[in-house]
């Protein structure tokens, strides 16, 4: 295939590499800025010294236990949610699809709410319990949407996927409202900030919990880039490929759910990344998933990390949920994109 690459194809590839390099550099810069940002002032010199193993106990605590895990988590969930969105957009052949649409956020949110409201906590709950439940809730909602959209001989219908997603989401949202009316204010506060996408798992243990999902599913999806290209092309070609397609669809859907579910479980309900990052990437490098996916992952990571950095400083010492910043930055940009593309 490489031998037959045309000149324009080659130019496109060069451009994709360039875009990826620029995004990586931007990520590096924001990473450094974020390490230097927080309520407690650490000068860049302090940060360097602490990284090199020096620094006071307090500086180490702030950098290694508070700031770094949070930055790394925001990178991972940004990449995970963005790629999940790109996959879902290809599967549903709908540019408006994102992890939220197949019920992951609302499913996870409902489970978190039920847990906070009804789990009798006589002792400390293990840190893994809540993300695990959130993951299961998101997965269950996605499975429900999937089952409703799947037809034995026709495979996955993209229109059904979207419509069922909307229906399941509103159902879950309704139950969520009913339950949240019955809990006390402190519990409600927790659930509300969770749903607004405060990256609440800010510990290395959450990085470790998230890493396997990202490390396995991200390469898997990248490996399937060509399949995604085919699926994205639409029905005639896809039906021509028959059963093969529906199997690939199911596997890729599962990967997208696994990615988004694990991210939402750790971060809370951050919307919009999965919608906007693929759009941004598409504008930069075009439709080809081989280039689109890595650039999507990088822009998602950059978006969430930058949003989280802003969330830390804008109302110091209070923090706003990162999801709100993502939405505040993302919404106008998205409108601009729509306006430009007519």
């Amino acid at each position: 295939m490489g031998a037959f690459m045309s000149e324009s194809e080659r130019r496109k590839r060069r451009k994709a590499w360039l875009v990826a390099a620029i995004l990586s550099a931007a990520i590096a810069v924001v990473f450094v800025v974020s390490m230097n940002t927080g309520v407690i002032r650490l000068s860049p010199i302090d940060v360097l010294r602490t990284l090199a193993g020096g620094g006071t106990e307090r500086q180490q605590l702030i950098l290694f236990d508070f700031r770094l895990p949070r930055i790394v988590i925001s990178l991972l969930i940004g990449a995970g949610l963005a790629v999940s969105g790109a996959v879902l957009q290809a599967l549903s052949r709908n540019a408006l699809a994102d992890p939220g649409i197949i019920g992951i956020n609302s499913g996870a949110g409902l489970i978190v709410l039920l847990f906070i409201a009804y789990y009798p906590a006589p002792a400390a709950t293990p840190a893994y319990l809540l993300p695990l439940l959130a993951w299961a809730g998101g997965g269950a909602a996605a499975a429900l949407v999937f089952l409703l959209s799947y037809r034995r001989h026709k495979g996955l219908s993209s229109n059904r996927l979207i419509l069922n997603g909307v229906a399941v989401n509103s159902g879950f949202a309704a139950v969520t409202i009913v339950v949240s009316l019955r809990i006390n204010p402190e519990q409600y506060q927790f659930v509300a900030t969770w749903m607004a996408g405060s990256i609440w798992g800010k510990d290395w243990s959450y990085v470790l919990a998230l890493l396997p999902f990202i490390a396995i599913l991200l390469p898997y999806v990248l490996f399937k880039s060509r399949t995604l290209n085919v699926l994205n092309l639409g029905t005639p070609m896809a039906t021509g490929l028959g059963a093969f397609v529906s199997r690939e669809q199911v596997l890729l859907l599962a990967a997208a759910v696994g990615l988004a579910g694990s991210c939402v479980a750790v971060s809370g309900s951050i919307g919009f990344v999965g919608l906007i990052a693929p759009h941004l990437a598409r504008r930069l490098v075009g439709q080809r998933y081989q280039a689109l996916l890595p650039v999507t992952a990088l822009s998602g990571a950059l978006l969430v990390m930058a949003a989280d950095t802003i969330a830390k400083v804008i109302l110091q010492p209070a923090e706003i949920p990162t999801g709100i910043i993502v939405a505040a930055v993302g919404a106008p940009y998205f409108l601009y994109l729509l306006y430009r593309s007519k």
Partner: peptide, 22 residues
């Protein structure tokens, strides 16, 4: 970080949900 900035020597916290999630 806001808590750290006060150098507290004791934290008392009321509800379970305030310390949820590690």
């Amino acid at each position: 970080e806001a808590v750290t900035s006060f150098d507290p020597d004791l934290l008392i916290i009321g509800s379970n949900s305030a310390v949820e999630g590690g």
